[in-house]
C-alpha cells in the first residue's frame, strides 16, 4: 500500500504539493491527472526518494520512508519502480546488459542461466522479441525503449510500477500497445500508479482517477463516477477526451 499523509513539497516559495493525502491499495490501478506543471510527476519522485519532502510522510506497506537508510531505499526502489517518461536506458550497453544490471546489482539471480531466464521471461511479458536482447538502445524506437524500461522494472521483481507519462509522444498504435501492457500488468496483480493525460486509457483501465489541483487531491473518482463529476477541470478533460473518439 502507498500512503501520502499531509505531504508538502515546495520549490522555493511555491508549494507544488500541500498537505496532500492519498492512499493506493495493493493491486489497484490509479491514474493521477491534472494540468501540466501542477506537480503530478513530483508526487512520484517523492515516493521513490528522488525529491525530499518539506513536511508530511509517505508510507510504503506501512513503513515511513523517513525512517529508511540507503540500503532500505534500494529495497523500496526495487519493489516500487519508477518508469520515467524518458526510458533512460544506458546507450553503451546491449538491451540484455541493461536488464541484467539491476539483477546483478541486487544479487537476484543464482546463476547466469537463472539471470537469462528472468530476462527472457520479462521481455516476452512486455511483448518484445528475444532477438532485441543483442541490440543497443539507439537502434530501437522510442516506444520499444519504453517497453524495455518496463521490463527492467519487472526483472527485479517490482510489485508496484509508477508510470510517468507512459504514452507521451507515442503514435496511436504504440499508445495502444503501451496501454494494453499497463492493463495486463494491472490484471496480473501489480499495483500501478500512472501519471498521464490519456483519459481514454484512464477510463478504460483505472480503478480510480485522482485529480491533482491546487497542490492537493481535488477529486478521487472511479471511471463510473467521473462522468457525473461537476468539477470544471474534470469536465474539460472529459470533453477533450470525447472530442478524440477511439475507433
Amino acid at each position: 500500500m502507498i500512503e501520502f499523509v499531509n505531504v508538502t513539497k515546495r520549490f522555493e516559495a511555491q508549494a507544488v504539493l500541500e498537505k496532500m493525502s492519498l492512499t493506493i491499495e495493493k493491486g489497484e490501478i490509479v491514474f493521477l491527472i491534472g494540468r501540466s506543471g501542477v506537480g503530478k510527476s513530483v508526487s512520484l519522485k517523492c515516493l521513490v526518494g528522488l525529491l525530499k519532502l518539506d513536511a508530511g510522510e509517505i508510507r510504503f506497506d506501512g513503513r515511513s520512508t523517513a525512517e529508511l537508510d540507503e540500503k532500505e531505499w534500494m529495497g523500496l526502489r526495487r519493489r516500487c519502480s519508477l518508469i520515467f517518461q524518458n526510458p533512460a536506458l544506458i546507450d553503451s550497453m546491449t538491451i540484455y546488459d541493461n536488464l541484467a544490471l539491476g539483477i546483478r546489482a541486487m544479487g537476484l539471480a543464482a546463476s547466469r542461466s537463472n539471470e537469462r531466464g528472468l530476462i527472457e521471461r520479462e521481455i516476452a511479458q512486455v511483448g518484445l522479441d528475444l532477438s532485441l536482447l543483442k541490440r543497443y538502445p539507439l537502434e530501437l524506437s522510442h516506444s520499444t525503449q519504453k517497453r524495455v524500461s518496463v521490463a527492467r522494472a519487472l526483472v527485479v521483481g517490482s510489485e508496484a510500477l509508477l508510470f510517468d507519462e507512459p504514452t507521451t509522444g507515442l503514435d496511436p498504435i504504440n499508445t495502444a500497445r503501451i496501454n494494453q501492457l499497463i492493463e495486463g500488468l494491472g490484471r496480473a496483480g501489480r499495483t500501478i500508479w500512472v501519471v498521464s493525460h490519456d483519459m481514454h486509457c484512464a477510463l478504460a483501465v483505472a480503478d480510480r482517477i485522482l485529480l491533482l489541483e491546487g497542490a492537493h487531491i481535488a477529486a478521487d473518482l472511479t471511471p463510473k463516477t467521473i462522468r457525473s463529476s461537476n468539477h470544471p477541470l474534470i469536465r474539460q478533460f472529459l470533453e477533450e477526451a470525447d472530442a478524440r473518439p477511439l475507433h
Binding site: 494540468r35 501540466s36 507519462e165 507521451t168 509522444g169 503514435d171 483519459m199 478533460f237 477533450e240
Partner: peptide
C-alpha cells in the same frame, strides 16, 4: 506532446489562430 488535454487544446487554438499570417509545418502522431 506531454501537455494535459486542456492546455494542449489552448496551444492548438493558438497555432490555428496563426493560419493566414504564417505558413505552419507541424509534426505530430496525435
Amino acid at each position: 506532446a506531454g501537455l494535459d488535454p486542456v492546455t494542449g487544446r489552448e496551444i492548438l487554438d493558438l497555432i490555428a489562430g496563426l493560419r493566414g499570417s504564417a505558413s505552419i509545418v507541424l509534426a505530430t502522431s496525435d
